[in-house]
Nucleic acid binder design. Sequence first.
DNA 1: GAGACCGTAACTTTTTTTGTGACGGAATGG
DNA 2: CCATTCCGTCACAAAAAAAGTTACGGTCTC
Lengths: 138, 138
Amino acid sequence: MNPRLSLALHVLCLLATQPQQRVTSEYLANSIGTNPVVIRRLLARLRQAGLVTSKGAAGGGWQLSRPAAEISVRSVRAALGEEVALRRHKNQPHPQCPVGRGVNQALDAVYASADAAIDAALEHWSIAQVLELALQVS
Amino acid sequence: MNPRLSLALHVLCLLATQPQQRVTSEYLANSIGTNPVVIRRLLARLRQAGLVTSKGAAGGGWQLSRPAAEISVRSVRAALGEEVALRRHKNQPHPQCPVGRGVNQALDAVYASADAAIDAALEHWSIAQVLELALQVS
DNA sequence: GAGACCGTAACTTTTTTTGTGACGGAATGG
DNA sequence: CCATTCCGTCACAAAAAAAGTTACGGTCTC
């Protein structure tokens, strides 16, 4: 799985530390060690999912749209969509092989159950909890 | 998650259809639509985990080391190691940021719980079941 | 209306993954 | 015992995916 979920959680934790203020993508990028555009791209998805809001212009920036305790890690993963999931392989199997013809659908069933399990596990974590844990550790 | 698990399951299903015989990597590669070396690399890991056996020389090839019903998808994932899991991001955060310093450890905790959930879900599936499902579908 | 920020597209660079070619070694089985 | 078959593995090429960068238009604030 790609590290995008990690990045998203990191950003959201940062936003959670200053829930009253708008934070710029430049600040976030600087703090995390990446590029502002990367942050904007990422947050654009989270905004679509209603997790954050953004505002252009001076004094603008990003902000959580609800308390960090009410944002589950599951919802963050969901906001990122398929990019954070088990994936099919996409080789083209020999057309006469019955296994090759059916295996992808079979895998879909397997992965669906795994996916549900992941969601259930991540539902237990909120951004607030992740943040708290991160601060404890450091 | 990368598609390697999918590839592995596909290969194992193929082996499961002919449990009595050794199957060559060339045959497998041809059936799946990839290169024999890719298959060998992959199966080398599964062999380390004791899931398959291999034999060089004429008449050689690959074979499941136990009945397909006794190979769980979980064990396959485990054999592939960390490559099939949630991943950290590896940007270097600003050194004075307390969030950046602790976030990775916090994520480790989150991901550990997700990982356990995945394992539990995949434990319910065996290669035999996946194969059966694939054949049903096709 | 000047400046601060987002929004987004296009492009480059980097990283990761996959695919290829090559060749030694081992064992089979004539 | 020798030719053949097949794995084991390295080194490299190619392709795909991801991340980073530049650029610029739009919008709102002050």
